[in-house]
Design a protein around this nucleic acid. Sequence first.
RNA 1: GGUCCCGUAGCUCAGCUGGAUAGAGCACAAGUUUUCUAAACUUGCGGUCCUUGGUUCGAUUCCAAGCGGGAUCACCA
Length: 596
Amino acid sequence: MNKAIGILEVSIAKALSELYSISNAPIPIQKTRNEFEGDYTLTTFAYTKETKKKPEDLGNEIGNYLVKNNSNISAFNVVKGFLNISFNDAYWCNYLSAVVSEKYTGFKKQNSSGRTVLLEYSSPNTNKPLHLGHIRNNLLGWSVAEILKANGHKVIKTNIVNDRGIHICKSMLAWQKWGNGETPSSSGIKGDHLVGKYYVEFDKAFKKEINELVEKGLNKEEAEKKAPLIIEAQEMLQKWEKGDTEVKELWKTMNSWVYAGFDVTYKTLGVEFDNIYYESETYIKGKDIVTDGLAKGVFVKKEDGSVRIDLTADGLDEKVVLRADGTSVYITQDLGTAVLRFNDFPDLSQAIYTVGNEQEYHFKVLFLILDKLGYKWAKECYHLSYGMVELPEGKMKSREGTVVDADDLLEEMFATSKQTTAELGKVEGFSDAELEELYRTIGLGALKYFMLKVDPKKKMLFNPKESIDFNGHTGPFIQYTHARIKSILRKANEQNIPVIVSKDLNQINSLERDLIKFIYEFEHTVEESGATYSPALIANFVYELTKTFSRYYHDHSILKEENETVKQFRLALIEQCAHIISNGMHLLGIKVPEKM
RNA sequence: GGUCCCGUAGCUCAGCUGGAUAGAGCACAAGUUUUCUAAACUUGCGGUCCUUGGUUCGAUUCCAAGCGGGAUCACCA
């Protein structure tokens, strides 16, 4: 809740009541647009009917009332039906003065909301390395988790590793057939990439078989079911579910390669998990639930042996929850995982699934089935759905090799940041280790900001031919601005200049006023981004603040200001700006350097 | 075909529960540095907010239809 708006609402309500005997009318307040004088604007059109007055007259009358009756309000102006209201400088200075020593302005106290939220993100398959789509998922999940924490919730970051299923068997089978015992250490290939290589090889051979069958006269659908390779993979899956030692051993070995690879990528990306679930463990629970559901009559067993649920009455379709051969499908595992989680964390207020929007139907079905099974918490499950990352030629297809590999992209970002930094030549006095860290910070800053500034719900475009920018509306620009502020603060500290807002200060300029308002509004943006699960709101807010600061920096000197009171105030102001930038970027998982 | 999402400047994106002359960045053109870091700042160029209706004092925003693009409706995950 924005306090200034609250104050205004109360005063305006009184004005309406005293001047026109209007009560309970809506009070539409918005921020005053930049080109007009004022902080907040009331639109007065809505009151013309009841009062039979012109909007301009209403504006003037209400404005006069406010200035007379509210000591925080110093001025107003009226443009047509818009009453632009200004709070006085003292109001804004008092605000800054109140938060001057705070480091986490706008954040709620840790765990103060009493809510515990489990947030799942990443959710990789162990048959291929991570790509750009996973990067969006990881960054989004991490960021939303941090935003929810800043809103006072307790957050459990979790990962569900899809480590079993037919797709894993494909990689395993291909390796068995054509691998010649190749391992990450023998080949020097990162484990997840090595396994991914065999997944691609399976697919190539599989497609070849399909084509051969089609030439022999089968239609494509039949061919896809009858190709020897897929039948072999299915047999392997059955063996796996029966606990065949040889298959399990191979599975364990190959998965361990993948995990070692993922760990490297996660570490580079800077994401972590509080706990990790494996579907190889949760699918059994899923099968139990299907058995229970059968007994309860929620599910039905068909003649062919498959278990299904009819959701047509809910506008959905019939859904298989267990295959005819008794093996589990995707949703079986998800049922098991969900129940396990709420068993493991009985005080969960909410479970959030960070998964792409192509699975919206799946989650609709999943949550509905959980509800029908009688789990009260089913309505607390939320699908944090985000748009796909697309290339200029369309969707990325891992089987067609058109994916942007996560590791490659990260390396590219680091190389670019190194090159750019070298060209600008401002890193005198940095040690090699500091330089290395700076390159990573800036490269990651560019990538993360690029991905998080876009509304998560929308699909986003990535053009590999155009490298991610380091100028303009970008992470590095924000990082750079932070470094500039820190540089001034270091110098002020060396000169022992106090950082305080004096009561003697009687005037601030309009950019200073704007900056204080940014600090003031950060809290609201944190709440809003938490309520809408949108890091983009934070990203765009921080950019606007940074841009305003840059103009201020350009137009007004801080350390050369002659008036000591003003200088100290300015230091206090920019220190808070640095905090907001730093904290805002933290919510995006982006570090900000002290120097760059 | 059913359901859902999207359509804003040449490109990538903002635009909060309906409000003023629709904003940024990139690209393009021009300018700013003996002054706290030029990864910056300033100016210019650039728009049928997909189309047509409707609701409203007021619609990029809400509703309907149409056009265009995408996702999904698997015993894949």
